[in-house]
Design a protein around this nucleic acid. Sequence first.
DNA 1: GTGAAAGCGCTAACAA
DNA 2: TTGTTAGCGCTTTCAC
Lengths: 334, 334
Amino acid sequence: MVTIVDVAKHAGVAPSTVSYVLTGKRPVSAETRLRVRESIRLLGYHPHAGARALASSRTNVLALVLPLREGVHLPVVMRFVTSVVTAAREHDMDVLLVTADQGAAGLRRVAVGARVDGFLVMDVGLDDERIPVLRELGRPAVLLGYPAAVKGLTCVDLDFGAAGARCVDHLAELGHRSIGFLGAPGVVYARNTGFAQRTLAGFSAAVMRRGIASTALPVEQRRDAVHAVVATLLRELPRMTALVVHNEAVLGWVVDCLRAAGRRVPDDVAVVAICPDELAEQLRLTSVELPSEVLGRRAVELLMAKLNGQQPPPLTLLPPNLSSRTGFAASAAG
Amino acid sequence: MVTIVDVAKHAGVAPSTVSYVLTGKRPVSAETRLRVRESIRLLGYHPHAGARALASSRTNVLALVLPLREGVHLPVVMRFVTSVVTAAREHDMDVLLVTADQGAAGLRRVAVGARVDGFLVMDVGLDDERIPVLRELGRPAVLLGYPAAVKGLTCVDLDFGAAGARCVDHLAELGHRSIGFLGAPGVVYARNTGFAQRTLAGFSAAVMRRGIASTALPVEQRRDAVHAVVATLLRELPRMTALVVHNEAVLGWVVDCLRAAGRRVPDDVAVVAICPDELAEQLRLTSVELPSEVLGRRAVELLMAKLNGQQPPPLTLLPPNLSSRTGFAASAAG
DNA sequence: GTGAAAGCGCTAACAA
DNA sequence: TTGTTAGCGCTTTCAC
């Protein structure tokens, strides 16, 4: 194995100099730096991660804590994971996967065992049990989603409240006066999940403010359930001309069911979705983007800031971004 | 920070004894072992991963190399990831995420930097560029999917050839004499991806053997494309009474399109899918399971065997498992 | 069955 | 601007 001593000998310098060339923690003359770099390349030297971690108490690894439970849309998680890994690599960081089922013990294990420098925690609920543990561990952490009290934390999220309101505003400006809302499965609301409740709250406040008629319903991820709930909505809100859908898993079925019920989309019912752009693009629906990539990147950047001793604000909310898609509706079967 | 020395002092033994209690690499009297365990618990001791890696040249981390490119079904990847993490934890291993876009350099970096003990590589193609790199690195690796030449490697996969044949056998036994096949997007076949080609090969050989009429077509992941391809199939194979679908992303649409074309499923056209059980269950379709969980677990076990110096066989093929679902077809819209 | 002590490869304080 | 060296916390050989 090639060690730092080998490189030092080869370049005719001290081991510490090689270290400083690598970390940049102290100035090295251009000439030596070049020579050292060349030796590193020639010998194919890669610093030993463990030795580095031991000596510097920095691992250059961050823990990504994933949910993977009912109601989370897997493609969204994957997009997020990808952007986190990519952004992390740009900061010379690797990503260790911790699944939520490992729970608080898992967090403690990787933190106390000095396996990671910090945490990225996805899918944080309004009263998340992991938060006290994270506080206790005292390791830098960034949360996706946010609990009721954000003091002393660092959280990022889409501004779901604003997203719900944005959909209403858009539809209201188009003249709609009766708007339905289809949300996540009931269990998601029962679980006190921040994003679902905040979207609904934003929607409700906006329709209230404008005096628009509305009905909101949860939707399970089964085709027959979608069929039933769409029927209910059409019955309860007979003059409905627009629909906001915050449930990417059933979005396609909702459109199918509306068409099957004789409603043209978007002519009779304008559908606005809160979902990944890709999906909305595919279904040709106006939508508020679920910016997984931006969120992942931002989360990594906030974590890096904390690792560098900075104190970012407790809550970063990304403004919603509505894309109007008024082209031809893709219609096939159904 | 609590170190092994603290624990040793607290228990009144030598640091090495604590180490041996933890690793089990040499017998310790029941009495001392108990005392040490108690001290560990009391002090909340977790060994420092870096120090351990440095001293033992074992990191207890495995690298999971993920694809994340066009044509891979994200939920399947996630299921696989979950089972890998779960199985790894049962062997006291953590999982480091490496995305395929980091390429060969990424593999080299984590291997030479002694960040991981071994590799799990997903979505291996018939002529995968990462294989020579893995050979060169000499680190234990297990591949999911397999290249043309498996000599000296360790590969696991579903026996896709047998899966394709199994579908035909099942349908032939039910009396079907004209069977269609809808596969992955064209690009997947062009990329020389093992699983797609092997399924098709197994299907083709089986229909040939039985003298069954058949047509096979690739399917893109757009609704209109599905509509078109189903129309083509019904035209080309007018007496078709059964259909094998190996493309989970469009499976729902295929059923929709058949029904829209006036064919009852499964009465007029019996559909057999090769897809995750969950999806088939939801659509009430007979299917050959895509056993992500089993594959992930098996892959981890093979890797652990290699890390323990064993030499598992170069190719493990899981036999296909067909579940017949002949209950009522769920019909909603369409 | 247990202890003592020599490293593992690197970083960072101290020295020049 | 660069070199010297003492650890970081653990494993493992050697000795008892």
